[in-house]
Amino acid sequence: MMLEVDKLRMGYSNGRIILHDLGFTLQPGQILTILGPNGVGKTSLLRCVNAMLRPWSGQVLLDNIKVAAMAKQKIARNFGYVSQRAEGAGMTAFDAVLLGRKPHLRWHSSRADLQKTDGALRRLGLAHLALRRTDELSGGELQKVCIARALVQEPRVLLLDEPTSSLDLKNQLEILQIIRRVADEQRVGVVITLHDLNLALRFMDRFLLVRQGRVFAAGSPEQLTTEMISAVYDVQVDIVRHKGRLLVVPDQPAS
């Protein structure tokens, strides 16, 4: 057992609860997709996992060690996080990706740090933008920079909050293929939130369907049913098999 999220409960100070005793487990090399409509607490869930938010109750264990009790730097060595909104700054893309080495740095960035950054930039096809300022990049390029940063962090768990939201079709596929490879080859566990159910079905090992802060259903892609999707998203859908792949075809909003 690698990552164990147990009965997380969290809410706002006004008493509104976002997460109701939510939990899941994640094995090394596995991709878990959190599915659910806007505002069900997917982002809050991710932020509770790496202790950026403190849940009211429940706990997160990494190899049976409480994450909340770890030093911030140790958490950052174990968890990479890519937020929904990428922010550009006056630094170059190389600098921005090099930041991912920060949890491992002492005083100076070593040659190995620079080489890892180099590798990640290439891997995401950003080599030609390496010395460009990040506030001059497009939304999609910036999102790839953020993913590259999380990769050079060399975490054991990647937490990705809609990493493909501002990418075009080709880049969406590329990014998810890279993430799939990282999971397979480096045995990194991935928790990812996605709105595109077809992308999710294609790349995930397991899903967690969230409704109103509670786990509505969980399982492997084959276990996802039209009833589950209709109940959670309020949309009638068909699930069809095309060239061996499962596809979700939206029909119409449920009345």
């Binding site: 911030k72 730097q73 060595r77 937020s83 909104r85 922010e87 930041l99 920060k102 962090q153």
Partner: peptide, 20 residues
Amino acid sequence: RWNYNAMAAGDETARSLGVR
């Protein structure tokens, strides 16, 4: 200096990189 660089990339990113 690394903390300030991380914070320039956004508070959330900085937090996820272990910056308090």
